[in-house]
Every structure is written in C-alpha cells, then in structure tokens.
Simulated assay, not measured.
Amino acid sequence: MIQVKNVVKTFDGVRALDGLTMTVPKGSIYGLVGPNGAGKSTILRHITGIYRQDAGEVLVAGEPVYENPAAKVRIASIPDELYYFLSASTRDLMKFYRGFYPRFDAGRYQLLKEAFSAVDETKPIRRLSKGMQKQAAFWLALCCRPELLVLDEPVDGLDPVMRRQVWSLVLSDVAEHGTTVLVSSHNLRELEDVCDRVGILSHGKVLVERGLSELQENLVKMQVVFQEKELPQLPADMEVLHVSHVGRIHTLIVRGNATDVTNRLAVYAPILLEALPLTLEEIFIYELGGEDYEVRDIVL
C-alpha cells in the first residue's frame, strides 16, 4: 500500500530524513517507532502529501502523493497536533469532509454518534477538551472510509475505555474492509497489542523493518545461573547485546532463536536456564544498540 524509497528531506541544512526506505503492505497495521527527532512525523507528512521530498519516492497504491488529489482521497489522517477551523463544529466538519471524500459514509456518521456520545457535535471543536477533540477526529476519519489511515500519537489524551473502543473500531475496519493503518506512537505497549509489522527509525533511517513476531523470534532474554558465580567465556559467534546480573542471576540479551540460544547455553550445565520473550519496548531499546541509547538496564 505504501512504498517509500530512499527519501531525503532537509530543513535548514539538517537532514530530517536520510535515505529512508520502508514498505507498508495493504491491510496491515504498521507501527512506526523511534526516539524523539528520528523523523517519524516528518515521514508521515510525506506519506499524507503535506511535504515534498528532496529526493526519493513516496507512493500510495502505486501513485505519488504530493499534489495528487486522486491519491489523497484514499487517505485519512489524524496528526499529533489537531487543526480545525476555529468556529467549526464536528457536524460542520462532517459536511466539509463529505465534499472532499467520495466514500464518506454519512450513515456511519450517525451510527458512530453512540460510540462518541460524549462529543457535542454542535459545539466548536476548539472549545472541546483535548480528549474530546481526539474523539471527534476519529469520528470524522473513520467515516471517510479510507483505504489508508495514518495516525500520529493517535490515542494521546483518551481515557483507557475510549482507547479500547477506538482501537476496536480501527481493527474492525482492518478486518472487514482491508484498511491499511500506519501508526506512530511512543506507547509501545499499546502498539504491541495491535501491530503486525514494525519499523524502527533512528536518525532519519529505518534500522529494522519486520513483522512483530519475527522481531520477537530474533531476540531473546536469557536468565541464567551458572555453577560458578562468574559468567563463563561464551562462544565468540554468540551475539550478546547486553549482560547484567543481580546476585548470581545473569541476564543476557542475545540475538537469535530462543531454542538455539538455550541449547548453546545448556552445554555449560547451568543451575537455572530460562528464556523470556521481549516486549516491543525492550526490542526497541536493544535494536537501537549503539544509536545514542544507554538506558538498556531500565528494562531488566
């Protein structure tokens, strides 16, 4: 659905995107993660046609997006910082959106009133709370029946009940209509529950792009107690990303399959040997490795 090829974007001599390449398959939920300043919002603005790249290609359904209305009507977006006409209500914007999106579903707008019942559709959006504004944004975006839904920190400001309801609506569209969702968020725990593919950004590039299950299968946390107190000399070809210990318990973060790593450590006849799955947050921290991050101990 989305193909980004070697995209470069420079602002005032600083490269925000530095040859970024990524692919979002149709019907997938793709999570875009990375540290502050990695380029997440910048690439989302290219994909929605707000920015024009200095070099490279940005394609949605095989078409360039910038200044291409035919491509843009496929896309609905909820940015991190919402902008609406100052005096416009949700109902006013419904009429406005209906004029731009040929697939806008007025019937669904009425049905979703119940889901977003706390939003006063006649009240100017600027007078609503941040959480209510975000609900109004989802209400309108979902009624556009987009082929691609682009979300930047989408549930920031929503209470836990509304977060669950919003994600339920989005997942329903993915399952029933094949909607493609591209979401950028710092809430990695939440992305872990909904995403089937993840891209990790750093310094304007995608470091890793894989299915979430592939990421989890390629990195494992091992907790080991050896016969001796000290850590033995491990094989040189075992890619150990991090080592820590509490008392006699050594915690190793190792790149590789859990079964293979377990078998290789078993030859040392440890007293305790346990493989633990990593969360997306932990994968994010360890995949960044030397990319300016020295906070890996916090997740152990």
Rank of each mutant, 00 (worst) to 15 (best):
I2G: 05
Q3R: 13
V8W: 14
K9S: 08
D12H: 12
R15C: 02
R15F: 03
A16I: 04
T21H: 10
P25G: 13
P25A: 09
G27S: 10
I29W: 12
V33E: 01
N36E: 13
N36P: 14
G39P: 11
K40T: 10
I43P: 12
I43R: 15
R45E: 15
R45L: 10
I47E: 03
T48V: 15
T48E: 05
I50D: 07
Q53P: 06
Q53C: 12
E57L: 14
A61S: 08
P64T: 09
P64H: 07
V65P: 01
N68T: 01
P79V: 06
D80W: 03
L82S: 08
Y83T: 15
T90G: 12
Y97V: 05
Y101G: 00
R103S: 12
F104M: 03
A106E: 15
L111A: 15
A115S: 14
F116R: 04
S117T: 12
A118D: 13
V119R: 04
V119W: 08
D120L: 15
D120T: 15
P124M: 04
G131V: 11
K134D: 00
K134G: 04
W139M: 15
L140V: 09
C143E: 00
C143K: 05
L148A: 07
L149Y: 08
D152S: 02
V155Y: 01
V155W: 02
G157K: 09
V161H: 11
M162F: 06
V170D: 04
S172D: 11
E176D: 12
H177Y: 10
H177R: 11
H177Q: 08
H177D: 06
T179I: 14
V181I: 13
V183P: 04
S202I: 13
G204A: 09
K205N: 09
V208W: 08
S213E: 06
E214S: 06
L219S: 07
V220G: 10
V224K: 03
Q227G: 06
Q227W: 03
K229D: 11
Q233I: 03
Q233K: 07
Q233T: 14
A236W: 05
D237A: 14
D237R: 15
T262Q: 08
T262P: 02
R264F: 01
A266L: 03
I271H: 00
I271G: 00
L273K: 00
L273V: 01
A275R: 04
P277I: 13
F284G: 04
L288N: 05
L288V: 05
G290I: 13
E294N: 12
E294H: 14
V295M: 04
I298C: 04
I298D: 07
I298S: 10
V299I: 05
L300S: 03
L300Q: 02
